[in-house]
């Protein structure tokens, strides 16, 4: 299924946010996920379904002033 992942058309197998994080190899990272402009809380990763054409943003912390 194609989703818009961090601004890029991406084909993923995952059907939930939890599965997506595992598929991308990000499970040990301190990050946050937004689905269609709504923040997805960590407790809802497993139950949040991903649908085709969803806009998913995954962010983390980098150096900044």
């Amino acid at each position: 299924m194609d989703i818009l992942l961090n601004g890029e058309e991406t084909n993923v197998m995952a059907k939930t946010v939890s599965e997506l994080i595992v598929e991308l190899g990000l499970e040990t990272r301190m990050l946050a996920v937004e689905r269609n402009l709504e923040v997805v809380s960590k407790s809802a990763y497993a139950t949040t379904q991903i649908k085709a054409q969803d806009r998913i943003e995954i962010v983390h912390m980098i150096g900044g002033g």
């Binding site: 990272r29 995954i58 983390h60 150096g63 900044g64």
Partner: peptide, 10 residues
Amino acid sequence: ITVAVRRVNI
């Protein structure tokens, strides 16, 4: 310490 929030490089 301040940090910035950016997209993860997939």
